[in-house]
Design a protein around this nucleic acid. Structure first.
Length: 351
DNA sequence: AACCCGGGGTG
DNA sequence: CACCCAGGGTT
């Protein structure tokens, strides 16, 4: 963005904020302690949820001294229902540091305020800019979304290292005369207009300076990888061999993971029953001798299977039994191929 | 960098 | 149900 556009972007954003900002309790004060309380409450928590807690909390603890002197049990009671309860313990610890070390004055530099318990990069910048008018960045999820669109920043906002890109962007753009309005303007814009889904670009005060809007890419940004934590599942897998030398297989469901592929019977490990009991029950198998096959781990994109496998003699009229030649024609997922391989090796040993 | 930490609103 | 929310601490 050119210097001229940067200036217009700043002006439009700040003017829009001053005219359209919501009337919120913490916007009636510049008391750094009260701003601090609001910012901690707003961490990962919606505005509407916070409002009643904020008003009650400051009624109970109107100054840093009141909070410093509070009993923990009473303190937690005031936070009850807000969640992330370590926030309020850290807040009290930070406030006590301010009382003891800073003469009850919240520090005015990023370096000092950042040493306080519970004050991370975002909260430091928010308190500094909003309460003290210090031109410091306050990058939260809203700011990353807005700036990724305006500046076409394609860094993955799910990765921690991306945050410094956005912090630098804010420091390059920030209105040094009105850092409070600028920072809050970015957040307010993200909350009201530049929303995650279906942003209201027609109402946007900085639409003319938005790269994503110009290129019709607002729905593509921000880039955020899904942090679907891999699910770990443990199974016992049974290679059941009957007197004819045939093996018992089952077909997986027609939808979902490895749809319609074949597998040796596998039973998720549960504490209640030995899986062999469940196996013999579901296939009405008379089980004979059993030996262990090597355990293995199989990693899918989003799931990890830990498989314990066993070689068992068994007889049943139920289930689908196949010769090795027939199995060679069936679709088997790789982990089952591995187990089949170890079964063949184990049988060679016995022979 | 991954993981944990609560609870509620929303498409 | 998955995602998101004015994130930070711990490991």
């Amino acid at each position: 963005m050119s210097y001229k556009y940067e200036k217009e972007f700043r002006q439009n954003l700040v003017e829009w904020f001053e005219n359209e900002k919501r009337d919120l309790p913490w916007r009636k004060t510049k008391d750094p302690y009260k701003i601090w309380v609001s910012e901690v409450m707003l961490q990962q928590t919606r505005v509407d949820t916070v409002i009643p807690y904020y008003e009650n909390f400051l009624e109970k603890f109107p100054t840093v001294q009141h909070l410093a002197d509070a009993e923990e049990e009473f303190l937690l009671k005031q936070w009850e229902g807000l969640g992330y309860y370590s926030r309020v313990r850290n807040l009290q610890a930070g406030v006590r540091e301010v009382v003891e070390t800073y003469n009850s004055i919240v520090p005015k530099t990023r370096k000092e305020i950042s040493t306080l318990k519970g004050v991370g990069p975002y909260t430091a910048g928010a308190v500094l800019s909003i309460a003290y008018g210090v031109p410091e960045h306050a990058v939260d999820g809203n700011v990353m979304r807005v700036l990724s669109r305006v500046l076409l920043l394609e860094d993955d906002i799910a990765q921690p290292k991306s945050k410094k890109v956005f912090e630098k962007a804010v420091m390059d753009l920030i209105d040094v005369k009105k850092p409070s309005e600028f920072n809050q303007g970015l957040m307010e814009l993200g909350a009201l207009v530049c929303t995650p889904t279906s942003p209201k670009c027609l109402l946007c005060p900085v639409r003319d300076y938005c790269g994503a809007f110009a290129e019709g890419r607002t729905t593509e940004l921000p880039i955020k990888t899904k942090k679907t934590k891999v699910k770990k599942l443990s199974y016992d897998v049974f290679v059941v061999e009957n007197e004819e030398g045939k093996l018992l297989l089952e077909k997986r469901p027609e939808t979902g993971l490895l749809a319609n592929m074949w597998q040796f019977p596998m039973i998720e490990q549960a504490a209640e029953y030995a899986s062999t009991v469940e196996l013999s029950k579901s296939y009405q198998i008379e089980l004979g001798g059993q030996s262990e096959l090597p355990s293995l781990k199989h990693i899918f994109s989003h799931i990890v299977w830990n498989l314990n496998s066993f070689y068992i003699k068994g007889e049943s009229t139920k289930g689908d039994w196949f010769t090795l030649e027939q199995i060679a024609e069936l679709p088997l997922p790789v982990p089952m191929q591995k187990i089949l391989h170890s079964y063949k090796i184990e049988r060679c040993k016995i022979d």
